[in-house]
């Protein structure tokens, strides 16, 4: 059964969407584990299925189009894919919480911060208004918002982007969840504010012993915050390894390309970057075999395109989708 060190185990997850043009598979057999108290980074470009994976875990897929068509999501031994709506309600916020990319759209614009925090508190806990106030102030202090009493009376639009993200984090942490899913939490923020928010998540994690699933497209953020990394491409995991190993010895051509394509601060100004040619293939045209073939610049045989490469552990803790061409 599940090893006790893993809080979340995603096994062969398949998530599909029914569209006018037929059924598309957004997540195609993804597997990874989140270790207790650790941070797992999920990295990939837009459309690779990383957000859909997160939404599948928290069962927030848009209804009725999206559904989990296969695999299991086991959270401390319970399969989340099978929970009823009632069970989910008890589950969300207490066991798993989520924060989103754009706090302006995730917060209610016509209610005060205090009201929204109160709602989150009352969801799982009967409290008097005095208790709510006290708890709200405590939470805002925890996420390092100065003068919390004043902020409680304010509306989201009165706060800066960084402040809004702090409020989101405070709401997510009300009931001390065991797992926090952070979907691009800093993408909409300035670098300086990003550093503040990452630092905040990090210290709250240590303090509360929480596990974090961090979704991002920024390899810099991954390098600075994660223990382990899962690289996704076109709905599948192409590589997975401890953070140091992903950066020091990436094995899949996509991971290598991704690492080489980012401008580094110490690189020579105006030198050409190593770019990955082309763009992510549209979801309707995906092949059963290696999906990076077209952009890899390496000739693939028809069998590589028609047969799904196995996902194997090539060295301890280091897994890769073993396309014989892309993993040389």
């Amino acid at each position: 059964m599940s090893a006790p060190e893993n809080i979340l185990e995603v096994k062969d997850l398949v998530t599909v969407f029914d569209t006018d043009a037929g059924r598309v598979t957004a997540v195609d057999g993804v597997r990874f584990e989140v270790k207790r108290g650790k941070t797992l980074g999920l990295v990939g470009e837009s459309g690779c299925g990383k957000s859909v994976t997160a939404f599948s875990i928290n069962r927030l897929l848009p209804q009725p189009h999206g559904k989990i068509a296969g695999g299991s999501i086991s959270f401390e031994g319970r399969n989340l894919a099978e929970l009823s709506v009632e069970e989910l309600r008890k589950f969300r916020g207490r066991e798993i919480s989520m924060i989103f990319q754009e706090p302006m759209t995730a917060l209610n614009p016509v209610q005060t911060v205090g009201k929204q925090l109160a709602e989150a508190i009352l969801l799982h806990q009967k409290s008097s208004s005095r208790e709510i106030l006290q708890r709200s102030i405590e939470l805002l202090t925890k996420v390092r918002i100065p003068s919390p009493e004043v902020r409680l009376q304010e509306y989201p639009h009165q706060l800066s982007g960084g402040m809004r993200q702090r409020v989101m984090i405070a709401m997510a942490l009300v009931h001390k969840p065991k797992l926090l899913i952070a979907d691009e939490p800093t993408t909409a923020l300035d670098v300086t504010v990003q550093a503040q928010i990452l630092d905040l998540i990090n210290s709250l994690q240590t303090e509360m012993g929480m596990s974090v699933l961090l979704i991002t497209h920024d390899l810099g953020v991954i390098a600075e915050t994660c223990d382990e990394v899962v690289v996704m491409y076109a709905g599948r995991v192409v590589e997975r390894a401890p953070v140091a190993e992903i950066f020091s010895s990436p094995r899949h051509a996509y991971t290598q390309g991704l690492l080489q394509s980012i401008p580094k601060i110490e690189s020579v100004p105006k030198s050409r970057l190593k770019a990955i040619p082309g763009s992510v293939p549209p979801i309707e045209t995906l092949l059963p075999g290696c999906r990076f073939a077209e952009r890899s610049g390496r000739p693939h045989l028809p069998e590589h395109l028609n047969q799904r490469p196995p996902f194997i552990e090539i060295s301890p803790q280091h897994w890769v989708e073993q396309c014989p061409v892309c993993v040389a």
């Binding site: 503040q196 630092d199 920024d218 810099g220």
Partner: peptide
């Protein structure tokens, strides 16, 4: 400069955080 996340886990460092906006 200090706030830029460096894509190299071996260079993790404690940074002086800028406060405020």
């Amino acid at each position: 400069l200090d706030a830029i996340p460096v894509p190299d886990p071996s260079k993790r460092r404690a940074r002086r955080l800028l406060s405020g906006d």
